[in-house]
Simulated scan of single mutants.
Amino acid sequence: MARVSQEHLDARRRQILDGAAICFARNGFHATSMQDVLKEVDLSAGAVYRYFSGKEELIAAVVGEVLASVRGAFEEASRQSPPLPPDELLTVVLGRTLAARENLTFEGEPAFPRLVVQVWAETLRNKELAVVLHDGYAGVRAAWARIVEGYQDAGMMRADVHPDHVARTMIAAAVGFLAQQALFGSAPVDVLRDGLRALMSMSDERTATGGSQLG
Protein backbone atom coordinates (compact mmCIF):
# COMPACT_ATOMS: atom_id res chain seq x y z
CA MET A 1 0.00 0.00 0.00
CA ALA A 2 1.40 3.37 -1.01
CA ARG A 3 2.25 5.68 1.84
CA VAL A 4 0.21 8.86 2.11
CA SER A 5 2.46 11.90 1.80
CA GLN A 6 2.73 14.44 4.58
CA GLU A 7 1.56 17.07 2.11
CA HIS A 8 -1.65 15.12 1.57
CA LEU A 9 -2.19 14.72 5.31
CA ASP A 10 -1.62 18.42 5.90
CA ALA A 11 -3.96 19.36 3.05
CA ARG A 12 -6.71 17.10 4.38
CA ARG A 13 -6.35 18.51 7.89
CA ARG A 14 -6.51 22.02 6.42
CA GLN A 15 -9.66 21.07 4.50
CA ILE A 16 -11.34 19.88 7.70
CA LEU A 17 -10.31 22.92 9.71
CA ASP A 18 -11.48 25.34 7.02
CA GLY A 19 -14.80 23.54 6.67
CA ALA A 20 -15.30 23.52 10.43
CA ALA A 21 -14.42 27.22 10.61
CA ILE A 22 -17.12 28.04 8.05
CA CYS A 23 -19.67 25.97 10.00
CA PHE A 24 -18.74 27.67 13.25
CA ALA A 25 -18.91 31.11 11.62
CA ARG A 26 -22.35 30.27 10.24
CA ASN A 27 -24.06 28.78 13.30
CA GLY A 28 -21.71 29.21 16.23
CA PHE A 29 -19.81 26.50 18.07
CA HIS A 30 -22.62 25.23 20.26
CA ALA A 31 -25.19 24.79 17.45
CA THR A 32 -22.79 23.14 15.01
CA SER A 33 -22.72 19.34 14.98
CA MET A 34 -20.11 17.00 13.62
CA GLN A 35 -22.64 16.04 10.95
CA ASP A 36 -22.64 19.67 9.82
CA VAL A 37 -18.86 19.57 9.51
CA LEU A 38 -18.91 16.25 7.62
CA LYS A 39 -21.40 17.68 5.15
CA GLU A 40 -19.40 20.87 4.70
CA VAL A 41 -16.11 19.10 3.96
CA ASP A 42 -17.77 16.22 2.06
CA LEU A 43 -15.77 13.56 3.87
CA SER A 44 -16.67 10.41 5.74
CA ALA A 45 -16.76 10.30 9.52
CA GLY A 46 -13.73 8.00 9.52
CA ALA A 47 -11.71 10.44 7.44
CA VAL A 48 -12.45 13.32 9.82
CA TYR A 49 -12.04 11.36 13.05
CA ARG A 50 -8.61 10.30 11.86
CA TYR A 51 -7.52 13.88 12.53
CA PHE A 52 -9.86 15.05 15.29
CA SER A 53 -11.48 13.02 18.06
CA GLY A 54 -14.63 15.13 18.10
CA LYS A 55 -16.14 18.60 18.05
CA GLU A 56 -14.35 19.84 21.18
CA GLU A 57 -10.97 19.08 19.67
CA LEU A 58 -12.03 20.79 16.44
CA ILE A 59 -13.16 23.84 18.40
CA ALA A 60 -9.85 24.00 20.24
CA ALA A 61 -7.92 23.77 16.96
CA VAL A 62 -9.99 26.46 15.21
CA VAL A 63 -9.86 28.82 18.19
CA GLY A 64 -6.14 28.25 18.51
CA GLU A 65 -5.65 29.19 14.87
CA VAL A 66 -7.79 32.33 15.17
CA LEU A 67 -5.86 33.55 18.21
CA ALA A 68 -2.50 32.65 16.67
CA SER A 69 -3.37 34.52 13.49
CA VAL A 70 -4.32 37.71 15.31
CA ARG A 71 -1.47 37.52 17.81
CA GLY A 72 1.11 36.74 15.13
CA ALA A 73 0.13 39.77 13.06
CA PHE A 74 0.29 42.05 16.10
CA GLU A 75 3.63 40.69 17.28
CA GLU A 76 5.17 40.99 13.82
CA ALA A 77 4.10 44.63 13.75
CA SER A 78 5.69 45.19 17.15
CA ARG A 79 9.11 44.21 15.79
CA GLN A 80 9.22 47.01 13.22
CA SER A 81 11.65 49.79 14.05
CA PRO A 82 10.76 52.56 13.93
CA PRO A 83 7.10 51.55 14.26
CA LEU A 84 4.58 52.75 11.72
CA PRO A 85 2.12 55.35 13.05
CA PRO A 86 -1.06 53.84 14.55
CA ASP A 87 -3.31 54.47 11.53
CA GLU A 88 -0.95 52.67 9.17
CA LEU A 89 0.02 49.99 11.68
CA LEU A 90 -3.55 48.89 12.40
CA THR A 91 -4.30 48.86 8.67
CA VAL A 92 -1.32 46.60 8.01
CA VAL A 93 -2.16 44.25 10.88
CA LEU A 94 -5.81 43.84 9.97
CA GLY A 95 -5.03 43.63 6.27
CA ARG A 96 -2.61 40.76 6.83
CA THR A 97 -4.96 39.00 9.23
CA LEU A 98 -7.91 39.13 6.85
CA ALA A 99 -5.81 38.27 3.79
CA ALA A 100 -4.48 35.14 5.50
CA ARG A 101 -8.04 33.77 5.76
CA GLU A 102 -9.56 35.28 2.62
CA ASN A 103 -10.38 31.80 1.29
CA LEU A 104 -13.00 31.42 4.02
CA THR A 105 -16.29 33.02 3.00
CA PHE A 106 -19.86 32.92 4.28
CA GLU A 107 -22.70 34.08 2.03
CA GLY A 108 -20.22 36.05 -0.03
CA GLU A 109 -18.68 37.78 2.99
CA PRO A 110 -15.40 37.01 4.76
CA ALA A 111 -16.02 34.37 7.42
CA PHE A 112 -13.07 35.33 9.63
CA PRO A 113 -14.72 38.33 11.37
CA ARG A 114 -17.80 36.23 12.16
CA LEU A 115 -15.53 33.49 13.45
CA VAL A 116 -13.76 35.95 15.76
CA VAL A 117 -17.11 37.02 17.24
CA GLN A 118 -18.12 33.37 17.66
CA VAL A 119 -14.84 32.71 19.48
CA TRP A 120 -15.62 35.50 21.95
CA ALA A 121 -19.07 34.05 22.55
CA GLU A 122 -17.72 30.53 23.02
CA THR A 123 -15.16 31.62 25.59
CA LEU A 124 -18.01 32.90 27.77
CA ARG A 125 -19.25 29.30 27.93
CA ASN A 126 -16.00 27.35 27.79
CA LYS A 127 -13.64 28.03 30.70
CA GLU A 128 -10.69 26.26 29.06
CA LEU A 129 -10.97 28.40 25.96
CA ALA A 130 -11.40 31.48 28.14
CA VAL A 131 -7.95 30.79 29.62
CA VAL A 132 -6.47 30.46 26.12
CA LEU A 133 -8.11 33.71 25.01
CA HIS A 134 -6.95 35.52 28.15
CA ASP A 135 -3.35 34.40 27.58
CA GLY A 136 -3.51 35.37 23.91
CA TYR A 137 -4.93 38.79 24.73
CA ALA A 138 -2.22 39.36 27.33
CA GLY A 139 0.42 38.58 24.69
CA VAL A 140 -1.13 41.03 22.23
CA ARG A 141 -1.33 43.75 24.87
CA ALA A 142 2.33 43.26 25.75
CA ALA A 143 3.35 43.43 22.08
CA TRP A 144 1.41 46.63 21.49
CA ALA A 145 2.66 48.21 24.69
CA ARG A 146 6.16 47.76 23.25
CA ILE A 147 5.01 49.55 20.10
CA VAL A 148 3.70 52.45 22.18
CA GLU A 149 6.99 52.62 24.07
CA GLY A 150 8.68 52.87 20.67
CA TYR A 151 6.42 55.81 19.79
CA GLN A 152 7.23 57.50 23.05
CA ASP A 153 10.97 56.88 22.76
CA ALA A 154 10.92 58.36 19.24
CA GLY A 155 9.00 61.43 20.43
CA MET A 156 6.01 60.49 18.25
CA MET A 157 3.59 60.26 21.18
CA ARG A 158 3.16 62.03 24.50
CA ALA A 159 4.97 60.20 27.26
CA ASP A 160 2.58 60.91 30.14
CA VAL A 161 0.10 58.14 29.19
CA HIS A 162 0.76 54.56 30.28
CA PRO A 163 1.69 52.37 27.25
CA ASP A 164 -0.83 49.70 28.27
CA HIS A 165 -3.67 52.23 28.14
CA VAL A 166 -2.80 53.12 24.55
CA ALA A 167 -2.31 49.45 23.66
CA ARG A 168 -5.79 48.60 24.94
CA THR A 169 -7.27 51.42 22.86
CA MET A 170 -5.54 50.28 19.67
CA ILE A 171 -6.67 46.70 20.27
CA ALA A 172 -10.21 47.99 20.84
CA ALA A 173 -10.10 49.74 17.47
CA ALA A 174 -8.92 46.55 15.74
CA VAL A 175 -11.39 44.14 17.32
CA GLY A 176 -14.20 46.68 17.06
CA PHE A 177 -13.61 46.94 13.33
CA LEU A 178 -13.73 43.14 13.05
CA ALA A 179 -16.99 43.10 15.02
CA GLN A 180 -18.48 45.68 12.66
CA GLN A 181 -17.43 43.54 9.71
CA ALA A 182 -19.19 40.56 11.24
CA LEU A 183 -22.36 42.44 12.14
CA PHE A 184 -22.78 44.92 9.30
CA GLY A 185 -20.84 43.56 6.33
CA SER A 186 -17.30 43.83 5.07
CA ALA A 187 -15.52 47.12 4.47
CA PRO A 188 -11.96 47.80 3.33
CA VAL A 189 -9.43 48.32 6.09
CA ASP A 190 -8.73 51.72 4.55
CA VAL A 191 -11.93 52.84 6.27
CA LEU A 192 -10.29 52.25 9.66
CA ARG A 193 -7.08 53.90 8.50
CA ASP A 194 -8.88 57.04 7.33
CA GLY A 195 -10.95 57.27 10.51
CA LEU A 196 -7.92 56.93 12.76
CA ARG A 197 -5.99 59.40 10.63
CA ALA A 198 -8.78 61.97 11.04
CA LEU A 199 -8.93 61.43 14.81
CA MET A 200 -5.15 61.75 15.07
CA SER A 201 -5.25 65.04 13.16
CA MET A 202 -7.40 66.78 15.78
CA SER A 203 -5.80 69.55 17.78
CA ASP A 204 -6.64 70.08 21.42
CA GLU A 205 -7.91 73.65 21.51
CA ARG A 206 -8.40 73.43 25.27
CA THR A 207 -4.66 72.93 25.73
CA ALA A 208 -3.87 75.72 23.32
CA THR A 209 -6.08 78.19 25.20
CA GLY A 210 -5.00 77.00 28.62
CA GLY A 211 -8.27 75.48 29.76
CA SER A 212 -11.49 73.71 28.90
CA GLN A 213 -13.92 75.27 26.46
CA LEU A 214 -16.78 73.62 28.39
CA GLY A 215 -16.29 75.36 31.70
Rank of each mutant, 00 (worst) to 15 (best):
Arg146Ser: 14
Ala68Pro: 09
Arg3Met: 08
Ala73Phe: 09
Pro82Met: 12
Gly215Thr: 14
Gly210Pro: 01
Leu196Ile: 03
Gly210Ser: 04
Phe24Ala: 03
Glu57Asn: 12
Ile59Asn: 00
Ala77Phe: 04
Thr105Glu: 11
Glu57Asp: 14
Lys127Trp: 10
Thr123Glu: 09
Arg125His: 15
Ala121Gly: 06
Gly64Met: 12
Met170Cys: 11
Ser212Arg: 00
Pro110Trp: 02
Ala154Arg: 11
Ala68His: 14
Asp135Ser: 12
Met34Gln: 09
Thr32Cys: 04
Pro85Asn: 03
Gly95Pro: 05
Ala167Asp: 07
Gln213Tyr: 06
Ala2Asp: 08
Ser201His: 09
Glu109Ser: 10
Ser53Val: 11
Val119Ala: 09
Glu102Pro: 08
Glu205Pro: 04
Gln118Met: 10
Ala138Thr: 15
Ser186Phe: 15
His30Ser: 06
Pro85Gln: 03
Phe74Leu: 14
Arg193Trp: 02
Gln152Glu: 01
Leu133Ile: 08
Pro163Ser: 03
Asn27Met: 06
Ala159Ile: 08
Leu58Val: 10
Val92Ile: 10
Ala99Ser: 15
Val189Phe: 00
Asp36Gln: 04
Phe106Tyr: 05
Val4Pro: 04
Val37Lys: 00
Tyr51Ile: 07
Leu90Phe: 03
Ala173Lys: 04
Asp87Val: 02
Asp164Asn: 13
Leu183Asp: 09
Arg114Pro: 02
Ala100Val: 13
Thr209Phe: 05
Arg146Asn: 13
Leu94Pro: 00
Ala198Val: 09
Ser69Trp: 14
Gly136Tyr: 02
Ala99His: 12
Asp42Pro: 05
Met170His: 12
Tyr51Thr: 07
Gly185Arg: 08
Trp144Met: 15
Leu90Ile: 05
Gln6Leu: 11
Ala60Glu: 13
Ser81Asp: 13
Ala167Trp: 00
Met34Lys: 03
Ala31Leu: 10
Ala47Pro: 01
Ala179Glu: 12
Thr91Asn: 10
Asn126Phe: 05
Gly211Ile: 03
Ala138Phe: 09
Ala174Met: 12
Ala167Ser: 10
Pro86Glu: 02
Ala68Asn: 12
Ser212Tyr: 00
Ala60Cys: 07
Val62His: 00
Ser186Asp: 15
Leu89Cys: 08
Leu67Glu: 08
Val48Gly: 01
Ala60Thr: 15
Asp10Asn: 10
Met200Lys: 08
Asp204Ala: 05
Gly176Tyr: 04
Ala77Val: 13
Gly108Pro: 01
Pro110Arg: 00
Ala99Val: 07
Ala142Trp: 09
Gly72Ile: 13
Thr209Gly: 08
Ala20Tyr: 01
Phe74Gln: 07
Ala182Val: 07
Val131Thr: 10
Ala198Thr: 13
Asp153Arg: 10
Phe24Leu: 03
Ala77Thr: 13
Leu115Ile: 01
Gln180Arg: 15
Ala11Ile: 08
Glu109Asn: 09
Ala2Phe: 05
Ala61Tyr: 05
Arg146Leu: 10
Arg193Glu: 06
Lys127Ser: 14
Ala20Phe: 01
Val4Phe: 02
Asp36Gly: 02
Gly46Tyr: 05
Lys55Leu: 05
Val116Ser: 05
Met202Gln: 13
Gly108Lys: 02
Ser186Arg: 09
Leu133Lys: 13
Ala145Leu: 07
Ala143His: 03
Glu149Gly: 05
Pro163Glu: 01
Arg96Cys: 06
Trp120Lys: 11
Glu205Phe: 07
Asp190Lys: 15
Leu199Gln: 11
Met34Cys: 04
